[in-house]
């Protein structure tokens, strides 16, 4: 189970923010299998340590657990500085669907949806981008990367979840701008756009099997896209087609759709 081939990644670290997400966990397994060391950050440090122990035992890599809260902005810069050995890749996987109906009544709940999906990502990824940009100048050959998980929900605001949707729309736009900013430095930024994924987030929701991915399917796409230095990846790709159509529906019709 431990990597047998000579390991090119033996000294490299990736930081996974929101590491207890189903998708993040599947990514962690894939990266660990390839010999990467991992910083695992979660609001729940105890859970993160359990995941770290598992990955270290299975794949013979090093893994460290960190406490990280996406909505606690003042801690972000400090967290990133502490995160040593310094990572060369980051995946922001945190996010929350929230309770849309409650959020319509409760401003705090609405804010939390926006913060946990968008503002938090802006805060931490800006710190990461500054750091990567500076380090890349000294170590040009090092394959730095930034990846974050957005959602098809960000492609168009829908009646049933437009708070989450608008936060993800913001995230997608932010990542697109960040990508452009880091382009001259040669640091790729990957936007991951999943449709439905079978994780805790969607537990209790009846998902249509044809367009629903398993967490590992998303992880495979992420790991592969990072390697290819891709800009955007849709999982499953059919969602791209679906939203090509949905995006072009005139607003006069779209506003009548109740989904």
């Amino acid at each position: 189970m431990k990597p047998t081939r000579p390991n090119a990644n033996a000294k490299r670290w990736i930081a996974i923010l929101g590491c207890e997400s189903g998708i993040a966990r599947a990514c962690a397994h894939r990266w660990a299998r390839e010999g990467w060391n991992l910083h695992l950050a979660s609001r729940n440090k105890e859970e993160a340590s359990r995941t770290a122990a598992d990955l270290a035992l299975r794949y013979g890599i090093q893994a460290k657990a960190w406490a990280f809260d996406a909505v606690d902005y003042p801690t972000h810069a400090g967290f990133w500085k502490k995160c040593a050995p310094a990572p060369t890749g980051v995946l922001a996987a945190f996010g929350t669907l929230g309770d849309h109906d409650r959020a319509l009544r409760d401003g705090g709940a609405a804010r939390f949806i926006l913060d946990a999906n968008f503002t938090g990502a802006v805060s931490i990824l800006t710190a990461v981008a500054d750091d990567f940009g500076a380090r890349k100048k000294k170590r040009a050959s090092e394959p730095f990367f930034i990846a974050a998980i957005s959602s098809v929900a960000g492609e168009r605001g829908r009646r049933s979840n437009y708070l989450y949707g608008s936060a993800k729309a913001g995230l997608t736009a932010f990542l697109s701008g960040l990508r452009s900013r880091l382009q001259p430095a040669g640091i790729p930024v990957l936007t991951v756009i999943p449709g439905f994924v079978r994780t805790d987030m969607t537990a209790g929701v009846a998902l249509p099997p044809l367009v629903t991915a398993e967490p590992d399917e998303v992880a495979r796409a992420i790991v592969r896209s990072v390697k290819k230095r891709a800009d955007v990846v849709w999982v499953r790709p059919v969602w791209r087609l679906i939203f090509l159509v949905l995006r072009h529906l005139p607003e006069s019709i779209f506003k009548r759709l109740s989904f």
């Binding site: 207890e20 189903g22 966990r25 859970e47 359990r50 537990a203």
Partner: peptide
């Protein structure tokens, strides 16, 4: 139900 981790919240 198939939660990711063993925790009372699930």
């Amino acid at each position: 139900t198939f939660p990711e981790t063993p925790r009372a919240a699930a």
